[in-house]
Design a protein around this nucleic acid. Sequence first.
DNA 1: CGGAGGCTTGAGCGCCATCAACGAGTGTGG
DNA 2: CCACACTCGTTGATGGCGCTCAAGCCTCCG
Lengths: 251, 251
Amino acid sequence: MENRTDSLLEGLGGVTFAAGATEDVLAGGRQLRQAFREAPRRSADRGTMLVGAETRDPPVFMLDRGFAYRAFSLPDGRRAIVDILLPGDVAGLDHAILGRATHDVIAANMLGYRSLSPPALRDLMAASPSIALHALALMAETRARCDSHTIAITRLDARERIATFVLGVYQRLRRRELIARPTFNLPLTQEQVADHLGLTMVHVSRTLRRLREERLLHVDRQVVIILDLDGLRAVAAGLSVAPHRLALEIG
Amino acid sequence: MENRTDSLLEGLGGVTFAAGATEDVLAGGRQLRQAFREAPRRSADRGTMLVGAETRDPPVFMLDRGFAYRAFSLPDGRRAIVDILLPGDVAGLDHAILGRATHDVIAANMLGYRSLSPPALRDLMAASPSIALHALALMAETRARCDSHTIAITRLDARERIATFVLGVYQRLRRRELIARPTFNLPLTQEQVADHLGLTMVHVSRTLRRLREERLLHVDRQVVIILDLDGLRAVAAGLSVAPHRLALEIG
DNA sequence: CGGAGGCTTGAGCGCCATCAACGAGTGTGG
DNA sequence: CCACACTCGTTGATGGCGCTCAAGCCTCCG
């Protein structure tokens, strides 16, 4: 379990950076991870709200076990899940700057994490430009992911959205070497998936059935089995983050 | 025109930061703006692609006149406009880190801007922690905006999306003191608005007509007139960025 | 004047939401 | 051990929001 923790803490696995920035970003990542490791490890049960939308000076998290998600609830009860956080993700860097959370952060299942206070993080960044650069890289990565998700719900239909979503989680888990085969645990209810993809639970259920009948994807409870990776990629309409990220540029 | 440029270059107007970070962020903003001012001013015609999705080492922009947008086209021709950039916005900070653009950046009308190369920007950040902090603040602001937009297209219907969108642009322009009254120029075609909001041009047209009949909003060509600000806010279902941002916290 | 780009309007349909009922799995307490 | 409650998922019936197709209008401009 310890080596697994080590590898997943790499973060940003598989992402490439600008020529000339790579070494700094990676060095900053090591330093940032080290700082997190010195913080006490906490855990949270499924459904726990780590940060509420109105929390003052919320901390910065690094997950090392379990899934979480960023969510926002409308006054009338509708809810949107903006982003899914996986083991190894750093969440809430924006908190350290803005001093407030714009959304809830909620544990999707049993969670293990460490956190730093905003002033601690700012001190780290002030002391080490590499850490600041890594923080920027983390934010850039998050934003790229959110952009892709925005594209998906702007222009893809339900089937394409689900295919894209599943592939996205799959590839993130794979890059961190948390899984090796096209099967993984997805600790989200269909209602949560619906809130993420802008659908209803009923329609998620139907669409999953359809994908199963097409022999593309099998989802039973929280177990996802990708039956036809290429087929699923074809459905994802070019939004699956293809393997063109592999070439690591060193400046 | 010069004083207008000065005020709009403030950037981040009206946004508050974490206690203890505010002064640094603002100082960094001044330094960053100064660096941009030393770059030559360029201009681009409507429709010009400033950055293509495959551009290597794309520059970082600061707009000082005109609108632009970040867009992504799917292989089959569908298109999503992920974000709208206004005068004063800094675009492409992520480029400086990732070394590539994930989307196109396109001028919506006659554009005036300045740009910095990724290495130049990284040098600035390395030399001044305040600039790095400001860069983080800019990215945090952009991400917060994208999150709101994601929520909108995840859970709002067409009428609510348009109300939210118009209010969002209105408030960004107001915070930068580019406008003083609830009327402004929106240099986007209805097709571009549709691509931003996940609708079709036809339905945007119909929904605008409806909002006009309801005496909430008048849009003619590129002129937007908000007829009933409170009414429009009510339609926006709590997603309008309310004035709770006004209290500036100084640490 | 003709063409192009952008907007409007109508008719018809389809994807997805809504409503509703039921089934399966799990935990709890009697 | 079973009744019960509860959450989560499945399936069917129905309807509506928004898409598609299509035609026509307006404005700008060469």
